[in-house]
Design a protein around this nucleic acid. Structure first.
Lengths: 197, 197
DNA sequence: TATCTCGCATACGTGACGTATGTCAATGCT
DNA sequence: AGCATTGACATACGTCACGTATGCGAGATA
């Protein structure tokens, strides 16, 4: 009872996305076998091609889900800080820390762009970027920043944070490197301030 | 005459690298067929696997070559500017502009990291990064920067520039966006200065 | 109850990678 | 000079994964 077909469908999609998330993170997109992946949740490739069209479609779905989760976390952290400027820095830190998770790195930062193309064109609209842009615009309205294009500033900040994350992830002393990176990030970001803080 | 075997070898390697450069740039790493690629220069896969081991080896060789060219250009531009700080900014601009070339974008920035792993671990040592680090260290020695870790600063600067390039490349008005990005880049970079310029 | 729909399994074709084997020219030794 | 050896490259094959076409069974519909 109550197991309607659409609910079955949703459950199947969920199971496939979850399995793909694991497989893509562990083996990488190219080396992940669709046969293994689907068998891991008791299905076959038929279900996959029925629900997602092709392998890329599945990756897109996985990326959308992860991106959504990241946006939620970033927004929560940004809103937690009372001060807007502190919020921006906290968001940068959060972004760096999220990008430290192997799953995020492999799927969203490496295979995602290579397979799906430029992240800023994704349906999920690079939610983190949107959040950062919003924060920069609010700071601009308060007159606390030099006159600068909000999108440009947000993109460069995110880019800096991203590279910091990749650096930290590859390093042997993540904590030390994290400290250095955060310090440098604060320095760079302070270049945006109208009056140096 | 004088066609010694080592010279033949070098010529073969060169032809393969050149063909791969074209194929990888146009079709992407995954979709580039080794059969087509080698046939385009009158060879077969045999030559390829003999010279480069596997498909990844060929990509590595291509990346190394492009990376080397980029480093040479960046160094030339950096040295051309008399002032160190101006040199750093010029280098950032050069990096952004180089990353605008589709070949660089596709091969070095997208497929490269996805297939070969973290760029900073590449044999070519991410030559651009090394150049930037050197410049930052010189500026530090001159006391013109806040005390900051040179590698951290260089990595974040490069990351910002990289994201700027990807943004510009995906945009419909590259010139306008380039201007915005460069302005934002100057702002961010000025955050490193000991006394705001 | 008969039929229709639809979610999914199964079987097949295609294309690409990597390897094992063969061939031919250039070099070294006697 | 004549023969053996090395090494660069071609060729043929095995394997594997993707995507498609077809088939089946359960629930919806009348």
């Amino acid at each position: 009872m109550a197991t309607r077909r659409s609910e079955m469908m949703e459950e199947t999609r969920g199971k496939l996305i979850q399995a793909a998330r694991k497989a893509f993170a562990e083996k990488g997109y190219a080396s992940a076998s669709m046969d293994d992946l689907t068998a891991a949740v008791g299905l076959t490739r038929g279900a996959l091609y029925h629900n997602f069209g092709d392998k890329r479609g599945l990756l897109q779905a996985v990326v959308d889900r992860i991106d959504g989760e990241m946006a939620a976390r970033a927004q929560a952290i940004g809103n937690a800080a009372g001060d807007e400027w502190a919020g921006l820095l906290a968001e940068g830190r959060a972004y760096i820390e999220m990008a430290l998770e192997p799953e995020v790195q492999r799927i969203v930062l490496l295979d995602g762009p290579a397979v799906l193309g430029d992240p800023s064109q994704w349906p999920s609209q690079n939610s983190c970027l949107q959040a950062t842009i919003a924060k920069v615009e609010r700071l601009l309205a308060e007159g606390r920043l030099k006159p600068v294009d909000p999108e440009a500033a947000a993109r460069l900040l995110n880019g800096a944070a991203l590279n910091a994350a990749l650096w930290i992830a590859a390093s042997k002393e993540p904590e030390k490197v994290l400290a250095k990176a955060l310090e440098a990030f604060r320095c760079l970001a302070s270049g945006l301030l109208a009056k140096p803080g």
